[in-house]
Design a protein around this nucleic acid. Structure first.
Length: 419
RNA sequence: CGGGGAUUGGCGCAGUUGGCUAGCGCGCCGCGUUUGGGACGCGGAGGUCGGAGGUUCGAGUCCUCUAUCCCCGACCA
């Protein structure tokens, strides 16, 4: 992308109303735009991050054998009434509206019920199960208080995976697979080291649910963490009994703030029974479909990464999610601009995502923006250049300037991109 | 939903006990000088003070209502 053609602009000052670091930096660097409390628009750079996170999620979901779908955001009240979750007393985050003819509809805040409804038509026999479906969806939740920038919105992007199967054993096996996949995902986006499997309240169906909590000062949850075992207990279920049950030693626990980046729900046979979604087993008996669901907040993940990876100059994206791998700029003569143009074309042709700062501004401004946007590698072309001379490359996380010949530079960057 | 704070050009802010054409910085436009860490000079454009009502000779400033935003708490199946 040529910056001269980019609509967004970086700003030096933060809107005072934004206190959350993720919102401050994402707004200053031009990644997102706040429409209202709890609702953010994603601009080209922010969307690039979102899409990178989605690509990683997609690979891991496909690896689990799940198929991608896209459910509607508008949801009929009926399916939710079957499980009692239409009631505002039961679920207090509903956005509801109605059709012209008075029919009540809701804006999806999760999709268990609609998915079960869908599955009831596709699944009749034990031969049709198990099935795993996932989607990337904009969820709507009418939170009493939106806060923490993109980390807690009323509208946000979520990856949700649903697994439909025949019995608890099947469910448990998949549940374990997803746990492993989730840990891998957080590893890949750069949060692995700080993210812990956490026991939380299980709701009506099981004693515990599992959350994935990333330790961060700006987190909304308090967890009790055992670093060695890489396990944590959410404050909401913290008690001596629970600790005993999980064989956790109270004295080995650390109290930290954390952000919930993923969660897993085991619904067992409950939804199938409530909604009348059954299949015929090997002996022809009617059995309820078992359900489990697995969420990861994509936009929240972007916020948590921003909270974790920044310094006094701005964002510092891990390569896997950065909106571009390279920030390219030329200084000085027309020759260096020509050389930068060429390099831009070469890298782009090889599939390396480059932000080419071709604006007519002074170098200092370009350096500042490169840092603010947090692009992993900065390449500077200065002075008269030809193929045999060198190009300066610097990592966002380092102050060392290295000089490489063009071929070496290109192959190094191409190599990183392919990882 | 309870408590606290806020709302003045695109952004950040100032504006005294009500008083004259509402200021400043950043950004923006033009010209010139600049060009390795957000340059400088000169000249410009841009706000009716969140909204409605009221008090007053006169309201950004006082009163009432209202909207929105932020923070703390509660809530988060």
């Amino acid at each position: 992308m040529r910056l001269s053609q980019n609509v967004t602009k970086t700003i030096k000052t933060v809107p005072k109303e934004e206190q959350a670091i993720n919102a401050q930096l994402l707004i200053r660097a031009g990644f997102v735009h706040k429409e209202m409390a709890g609702a953010y628009s994603y601009l080209p750079l922010g969307l690039a991050v979102i899409e990178n996170i989605k690509s990683i999620l997609r690979e891991e979901m496909n690896g689990l054998g799940a198929a991608e779908v896209l459910m509607s955001s508008l949801q009929p009240a009926q399916v939710w009434k079957e499980t009692g979750r239409w009631d505002d007393e039961v679920v207090d985050v509903w956005f509801k509206s109605m059709l012209k003819n008075g029919t009540q509809i809701g804006f999806g805040w999760t999709h268990e019920e609609p998915f079960m409804q869908l599955i009831s038509r596709q699944v009749q026999s034990y031969r049709d199960l198990p099935v795993a479906l996932y989607q990337f969806q904009t969820k709507f939740r009418n939170e009493l208080r939106a806060k923490s920038g993109v980390m807690r919105g009323r509208e946000f992007i979520m990856k949700d995976l649903y697994y439909f199967c025949r019995n608890q054993q099947e469910l448990d096996a998949f549940y374990a697979q997803v746990q492993a996949a989730y840990l891998k995902i957080f590893e890949r986006v750069g949060l692995g080291e700080f993210t812990y499997l956490t026991f939380a309240s299980g709701g009506a169906f099981t004693q515990f649910s599992h959350e994935f909590q990333t330790v961060t000062k700006s987190g909304e949850d308090t967890i009790y963490l055992n670093r060695e075992r890489r396990l944590a207990v959410n404050q909401e279920i913290y008690s001596d009994e629970v600790l005993a049950q999980l064989q956790l030693d109270k004295t080995a626990l650390e109290t930290v703030k954390a952000a919930e980046v993923g969660n897993i729900f085991n619904f067992g046979a409950s939804k199938g029974e409530q909604m009348g979604v059954y299949f015929s087993d090997e002996s022809g008996q009617r059995q309820p479909v078992y359900l489990s669901s697995y969420g990861i907040g994509v936009s929240r993940l972007m916020g948590v990464i921003a909270e974790h990876y920044h310094d006094d100059k701005g964002l510092v994206w891990p390569e896997a999610v950065a909106p571009a791998l390279v920030y390219l700029l030329a200084i000085g003569s027309k020759k260096s601009v020509q050389a930068a143009d060429e390099l831009y074309n070469i890298l782009t042709e090889r599939g390396v995502a480059v932000i080419y700062d071709d604006r007519d501004v002074r170098p200092g401004e370009k350096f500042a923006d490169a840092d603010l946007m947090g692009i992993p590698w900065r390449v500077v072309v200065s002075g008269p250049k030809s193929d045999h001379e060198t190009y300066e490359i610097k990592s966002r996380t380092d102050t060392t300037l290295n000089h490489l010949q063009r071929d070496n530079l290109v192959s190094q960057l191409t190599g990183i991109e392919k990882q």
